[in-house]
Nucleic acid binder design. Structure first.
Length: 446
DNA sequence: TCTGGGGTCCTAGGACCC
DNA sequence: TCTGGGGTCCTAGGACCC
């Protein structure tokens, strides 16, 4: 990653923000965020859901990961386990969906393809968020421009979005919250003066600031810092001492000094595939089948971003919430003799690792495979002791990927991935994959 | 009975070396 | 009657994000 961090040491802290002074206005960041993204996706192809409370559940139908505004109004909290909400859901006729990542991924593409047209630089920050770099817009009314982006996106995709515009990413996040919260903003809030910045920060709880999580929030409240504004009034050295460089960066950003640049690195530094099992597993066979599938999925993701991994980690554990049951957690980290993205090879390592950590007598809840120390795919130095026919296996993988591309996921796979799928997850409330081919129905391995 | 999955960055502390 | 002190590398764990 080539994230450039401005430590701010050369900035003038007595005049916290000269970013928006006439004539020297520098770049602005626009943050576009889809409103209630997963719930909105479900709505696009099923208009009868408009006005209805909707929740989307995590994998395994475990807990709530998205809510429509009607569901929020019912007081359904984010992250709440689904079983605790049974009554509330029934009495209020809440529409419940298992998460459908094929649908959400496709809708995400549509949104990103729309907004990328509006700026010279875009950073896709998450499935439902992107930053735009608005430079060279000196003579343009940013508010009007933002409203155009918001209008175009909903017209093209059916997904409602909000936009925050400010001289730093952290302030753009703050602005975005206001854009979402108040209808009068028409989906766009711009922070382009110190007056607006002060007003916004005074109305923002410290815990709602990007970069301030639960722990820091608690700590800061202990020091009577309740709003983002209170935080910016502390000295730089106090913040550095109390929260380290991360906190200092947030402090600078809130004061208008950009520290977090656009990040254009596309390939990941680690890739993880892990799942909770649909039922508890005690036998080796189904666990190994699952782990083989996780390793294959990591390999596929590696090939997609044209990378090799040098390290593979396999882990498994019991249910940490079941405190009355015997607990077990273990992992095995393995250095790969040759960097690879070959499914069969990664499956081999993963299963070898698993035999080292599997234990009898436990009810396993979850396992996973992580590949890390990722390097770009390139012709490799021949290893004297490497007897594997790499060229040949590369071709096999290419053929496998293209078959799976044309005929659907998992049509071709490695034998160890198995067919039992005892480990597969629960998703009983899955919506149809309206936007993509039916063959992509994602009951596993998305 | 039932509590997701996938990432990033930073820091403290130990091992080791000179 | 004595216990050095840096630098560097690695790892585990903690904090954050969506």
């Amino acid at each position: 990653m080539n994230k450039r961090i401005n430590t701010g040491d050369d900035a003038n802290f007595n005049s916290p923000s000269d970013s928006y002074r006439e004539g020297v206005r520098s770049n602005f960041f626009g943050l576009i965020d889809c409103n209630n993204f997963y719930a909105s996706c479900e709505r696009v192809f099923n208009p009868s859901l408009n006005g209805q409370p909707i929740v989307v559940l995590s994998n395994n139908d475990g807990c709530v990961i998205a809510r429509s505004s009607e569901a929020k109004a019912l007081g359904i909290p984010m992250g709440e386990p689904a079983y605790k909400l049974k009554e509330l859901i029934e009495t209020n006729q809440v529409c419940v969906f298992s998460s459908n990542y094929v649908l959400y991924g496709d809708m995400s593409h549509r949104v990103m393809n729309t907004i990328v047209e509006f700026a010279t630089e875009m950073e896709i920050y998450s499935i439902d968020e992107a930053y735009l770099l608005l430079d060279g817009f000196e003579n343009i009314d940013l508010k009007a421009y933002g409203e155009k982006i918001v209008r175009t996106t909903i017209r093209n995709t059916g997904i409602p979005v909000s936009m925050g515009i400010a001289p730093t990413k952290t302030l753009a996040k703050v602005a975005n919250r206001f854009a979402k919260k108040y209808k009068a903003y028409k989906g766009v809030c711009v922070i382009d003066s110190d007056e607006k910045r002060e007003k916004a920060l005074k109305l923002t709880d410290i815990g709602d600031v990007w970069g301030i999580g639960r722990q820091f929030s608690k700590k800061l409240q202990y020091y009577s810092i309740n709003t983002a504004w209170d935080f910016t009034q502390r000295t730089k050295s106090w913040v550095r001492h109390t929260m380290g460089v991360v906190g200092e960066r947030t402090w600078l950003e809130l004061r208008g000094t950009p520290c977090i640049e656009m990040d254009h690195s596309s390939s990941k530094k680690s890739i993880c595939t892990s799942r909770s099992f649909g039922e508890r597993l005690t036998e080796y066979a189904p666990v190994s089948e699952a782990v083989a599938n996780f390793a294959a999925s990591c390999a596929e993701k590696l090939r997609k971003q044209h990378s090799y991994a040098c390290v593979l980690t396999v882990f498994l554990h019991t249910n940490p919430f079941a405190t009355n049951q015997a607990q077990y957690y273990n992992q095995k980290v393995m250095q790969l003799s040759v960097p690879t993205n070959d499914s069969t090879e990664l499956i081999n390592y993963a299963l070898r690792g698993l035999t080292g950590i599997f234990a009898e007598g436990y009810r396993f809840k979850k396992a996973g495979v992580i590949v890390s120390e990722i390097i770009p795919e390139r012709p490799l130095q021949a290893d004297l002791f490497d007897t594997r026919q790499r060229e040949k296996f590369n071709k096999v993988m290419k053929v496998m990927d293209s078959l799976n591309e044309s005929y659907g996921k998992q049509k071709v796979k490695v034998a160890a991935q198995g067919f039992d799928r005892k480990w597969k997850l629960k998703n009983e409330k899955l919506s149809p994959c309206y936007s993509t081919n039916l063959k992509d129905v994602p009951n596993v391995n998305v």
